[in-house]
Design a binder for these strands. Structure first.
Lengths: 205, 205
DNA sequence: ACAAAAGTGTTCCTGTTACACCCATGT
DNA sequence: ACATGGGTGTAACAGGAACACTTTTGT
């Protein structure tokens, strides 16, 4: 309270991912390209601020979101940036259409300095977390086939998986809830549809 | 830039751990008990701010430190708290003597709200990270015996380990550098001393 | 009929666990 | 001499990886 100078702006920045054939990241047009972001309002929680940033930039709401890391704002800009990553199912992607561009996070266009570390950090976390947390489901619609789920793992992990081992492992994970419906219409055998078994998310904040 | 109101104080808070028989956390006396912390200065990096917080509170410097999570400051206090955990070897503990109290992080005295989540988060991370990152060494002196190292794992993991399996596993990890010295003086066979093999730390910020 | 993804078990291999005794020292 | 932690190998077990064929549909 003895000094008012070190008051600094707090921003959130959100790396929004989806899967469209391959893993894609949303960048907002501009010079340079940006991530969705917002300045923290008084009385607002960081999570809420990140959700708001996403909503303002793309119109989507109620998105899976997780805090990544907090950086000191790049260059000599004062303040800090609390980075998040967010995942959105492929069937909600169109909502973001027009608000930005979906790019491959590995080779993206020139962006502001400081974005690179956020994006790398996010991609890294995504790969790591895939193996021990049920986040793959966040890329899928409410009901999905095991083939779709496997494809998510393959795309993010950048390697192909054995179908039988995959199914055994996933069934053992207890996250799957089998429905009695199937998806038909493709020119092959219909695929059983599954749901994510709802469970209490572990608390962090 | 259109609004100056949402400028908010940014603080760091550091949960400093050591091992003294059991895992111990440093709390600073007061009503309520606090963690070492500091307000972010202009132009200062978050890591530097956390190091400074630790230095000002205890006098120690050059400590292993890692960012944990960023919380919105508890209650209705504005601003954010970037939490860190830090590890200090047992042979440097005395430096902190007088500046605070070493308590068991599981059942500690009443503290300010908001501390609990930081401490829990830190303890959780510590246990998890022990299994895949060479952080146990941070609790030990420059040179150490395998017995000491095993004891660190046992204390943090809260379970006893098999001596032979432990040694096999650790030797395979490539983190150990055998010295030609032994530690003697105890009334048993002298123990070989090891060093941590220096390696490039992976970058995060 | 054919193309295309769904679905299903078994074998092998590798890495993890369990376990008991002798050694070198200080007192 | 004895108490104390240091030091060493092997056998059982479990979890992960490799692998091929039949089924059901749409065209």
């Amino acid at each position: 309270m003895r000094d008012t100078k070190p008051l600094a702006p707090v921003h959130t920045a959100v790396a929004l991912f989806t899967i469209q054939g391959t893993l894609k990241l949303l960048l907002l047009p501009g010079e340079p390209w940006r991530l969705p972001g917002a300045r923290l309002k008084e009385g607002e929680s960081l999570d809420a601020c990140a959700q708001r940033a996403l909503g303002e930039a793309t119109g989507v709401g109620d998105v899976f979101l997780e805090q990544l890391y907090t950086f000191t704002a790049s260059d000599r800009a004062p303040g800090v940036v609390v980075s998040y990553y967010a995942l959105i199912p492929y069937d909600r992607v169109q909502i973001c259409a027009g608000s930005g561009e979906w790019v491959d996070p590995a080779h993206w266009p020139p962006t502001a300095p400081g974005l690179r570390q956020i994006i790398d950090c996010a991609a890294e976390r995504l790969v790591a977390k895939l193996e021990y947390a049920p986040i793959a489901y966040q890329f899928l619609a409410d009901r999905f086939t095991l083939g779709e789920l496997q494809s998510v793992y393959e795309v993010i992990g950048r390697r192909s998986l054995d179908k039988r081992n995959f199914r055994r492992r996933l069934r053992a994970s207890q996250h799957l809830l089998e429905t009695h419906d199937t998806r038909r219409g493709a020119r092959h055998r219909p695929a059983r549809l599954y749901r994510l078994r709802e469970t209490e998310p572990s608390i962090r904040g």
